[in-house]
């Protein structure tokens, strides 16, 4: 993106944010319960230490779940390369995992791990990120194989060489694009699991403030979550995706 493009994007985001905050403020003036933007920001400022700690916990839960998802997706995509029934089974497994609701995952992992554990949030993040990563990885492998499979045959590459030198680097644009979506989804969903049963994190705090009728805290932490997602996406994930696609022109 050129300088002009970056400036336009910054203006667009500023306008979008202004519209959302404006609607929020307008709604607050009609509601006895909903705090205004200044009150929420003030609450956040007064509790920055807690906000930082909760952000760290949520990020840890999300990244741990995402890492598990990436490892599982790569392993299964590698297995799918064997073709035949294994490939079909991996694809079917992905469809089944995709069809399970996040609510079911959240409650299921709470039943398995119990309340106050951080494992449900991590597991839900993993269950959310996994099908996105697996779909992207499989698509990347399939397209790379379609484009360069003949080259592998011409050069007599082994399966391992084909994976290391052609499929893995050839799939990189798909992997990083999927990773961007998967990490974003994992972050959004892990806070749901935190809300259901955890002792820390942004989701836990959102639910706690809601239960305590502390709506300033609730809106402040909602703002914190949105800010975290935007910062993560624009400053980290978008750059990683651009790096992964650098040779595609």
């Amino acid at each position: 993106m050129g300088q002009q493009g970056a400036a336009r994007e910054a203006i667009a985001y500023t306008l979008a944010l202004a519209v959302i905050l404006g609607v929020w403020q307008a709604a607050a003036s009609y509601s006895h319960l909903l705090p205004g933007v200044p009150q929420a920001l003030s609450f956040l400022y007064d509790n920055l230490g807690q906000a930082g700690w909760d952000t760290l916990i949520t990020l840890e839960n999300t990244v741990a779940g995402f890492t598990i998802a990436v490892i599982l997706a790569l392993a299964l995509a590698w297995a799918a390369m064997l073709g035949g029934l294994v490939e079909e089974t991996v694809k079917a497994f992905n469809v089944v995992v995709q069809s399970v609701s996040v609510l079911v995952w959240s409650l299921l992992f709470l039943i398995v791990y119990g309340f106050t554990s951080r494992l449900p949030a991590m597991s839900v993040a993993a269950a959310t990120a996994f099908p996105i990563m697996l779909s992207g990885t499989l698509k990347g492998f399939e397209l790379s194989r379609a484009e360069y499979g003949e080259l592998s045959r011409m050069l007599g590459l082994s399966k391992t060489q084909e994976f290391a030198h052609i499929l893995a680097p050839g799939s990189l644009p798909f992997l990083v694009a999927s990773a961007r979506s998967a990490l974003g989804a994992a972050l959004r969903i892990s806070v749901v699991a935190e809300a259901f049963g955890a002792s820390g994190g942004i989701g836990y705090r959102l639910w706690l403030y809601y239960e305590l009728h502390n709506y300033e805290g609730f809106m402040a932490w909602a703002l914190l979550l949105v800010t975290l997602m935007l910062v993560l996406d624009k400053l980290v994930l978008e750059r990683v995706e651009a790096w992964g696609r650098r040779w595609t022109g």
Binding site: Y148, E150, L155, H165, G249
Partner: peptide, 24 residues
């Protein structure tokens, strides 16, 4: 065999593409 599509790996330089069969 030199296929119609050049099948050069876009993440490698031309030199590395040419060296690829030797390196593997």
């Amino acid at each position: 065999y030199i296929p119609q599509s050049d099948m050069l790996l876009p993440w490698k330089t031309l030199g590395d593409n040419i060296a690829f069969p030797l390196l593997v």
